[in-house]
């Protein structure tokens, strides 16, 4: 058997797993954004009648995962593993959703990169022969993130121009070993890169080097160039982080061309006043489960790379003066 590991950090799947279905739910602000019509469901308010933001987020994740199962019309018993993650301490949104889903559960934490990480790990489980169907889901919620990482939600404070807005959203995909749909052909697992950024209001800048490093390694490992992809989307670098990642890659001899964008830039428009764009696990997951997969299925995109970007700090580490370690995980999806 030939090794599926290629180059330094990449895996290429022998029998690429299929994305059987996908489902996305977002909050009202995301629903009003430019991608509003691409989501399966838009909540009218971010609490959705629950007693806390945390319960609302967990229910949202659960609903997204059930949505993906229903769309594929696959009996729940056939799902071998559930992979999920979120931003809250001890990934409670995922744990509590898993309590209801009653599936063998692997909790993941890759901060905002968790969707790409989940798809990469899920695909490895399938192509490795350990599973036939794997359900992947992640969530984030603006208000749960605000109160954990920043200030109480009703506090009257101004946000920095480089700050990003955490997406209220949950996205899920169901991966299968056989069937019709877009396929996950390869994945590049990122290294933790820390370029000594300490500003928690400039997370894009903290994550950009990790994303750039993963992109550089992916193309090196696969012997490909950016033009070989119709779309390369980073997870949630925002406008500032995207510009920095472009510059870092350019100075490292890689011109990304015009197909390089960022889910955090796509999901809101200028008038929504989010400053640098969006962030959160939900961001890349709903853009992938909505817009990107729809465009792949419509034949408008042939080969897409999603580079989930994560800032691996905590409020405690930031207060203690530690810099923000970043990570980027890439998955390649082909129509």
């Amino acid at each position: 058997m030939s090794l599926k590991r290629v180059g330094n950090q990449t895996v290429v799947f022998a029998k690429p797993p299929v994305i059987l279905s996908s489902y996305s739910i977002v909050g009202p602000k995301e629903g009003q954004g430019p991608l509003g019509k691409t989501f399966d469901k838009v909540w009218k308010d971010a609490l959705n009648g629950e007693k806390s933001w945390e319960v609302a987020e967990s229910k949202m994740l659960q609903e997204a995962m059930n949505g993906a199962i229903n769309q594929a019309s696959v009996p729940k018993e056939q799902i071998d593993f559930m992979l999920a993650g979120d931003l809250l301490n001890q990934i409670i949104s995922s744990n509590f959703a898993a309590r209801q889903m009653a599936l063998p559960f692997i909790g993941l934490y890759g901060a905002c990169s968790t969707m790409a990480l989940g798809i990469a790990v899920g695909s490895m489980l399938i192509d490795g022969g350990f599973a036939q169907k794997v359900l992947v889901g992640v969530s984030s919620h603006h208000d749960t993130a605000e109160r954990q990482y920043r200030l109480p939600t009703e506090q009257g404070a101004q946000r920095a121009m480089s700050a990003q807005w955490t997406v209220t959203g949950a996205g899920s995909v169901l991966l299968g070993s056989d069937g019709a749909g877009p396929r996950v052909t390869s994945a590049t697992i990122g290294r933790v890169i820390d370029f000594a950024v300490k500003d928690v209001n400039n997370m894009g800048a903290a994550m950009a080097p990790a994303v750039a490093d993963t992109i550089l390694n992916h193309f090196h490992d696969r012997q490909l160039r950016p033009v070989d992809y119709n779309l390369i989307a980073s997870g949630d670098l925002g406008a500032v982080g995207l510009a920095l990642a472009c510059e870092l890659l350019k100075q490292s001899g890689m011109n990304m061309g015009t197909n390089f964008t960022d889910c955090g830039v796509m999901i809101y428009d200028e008038s929504q006043d989010t400053h640098s764009g969006a962030s959160g696990c939900g961001c890349s997951s709903v853009v992938l489960a909505g817009d990107i997969l729809q465009r792949i299925k419509a034949g408008k995109l042939k080969r897409v790379m999603l580079v989930g970007s994560g800032a691996l700090h905590s409020p405690t580490s930031a207060l203690q003066g530690e810099s923000i370690p970043g990570i980027g995980h890439a998955v390649v999806i082909e129509g």
Binding site: S162, A196, D213, A243, L244, L248, S252
Partner: peptide
């Protein structure tokens, strides 16, 4: 292994350049 040709030190000036005032 391909490496980023920008050091963490140089990156701080890039951040200043790209972050809106």
């Amino acid at each position: 292994k391909p490496l980023l040709s920008v050091t963490a030190e140089k990156y701080q000036t890039l951040i200043k350049q790209y972050t809106p005032k």
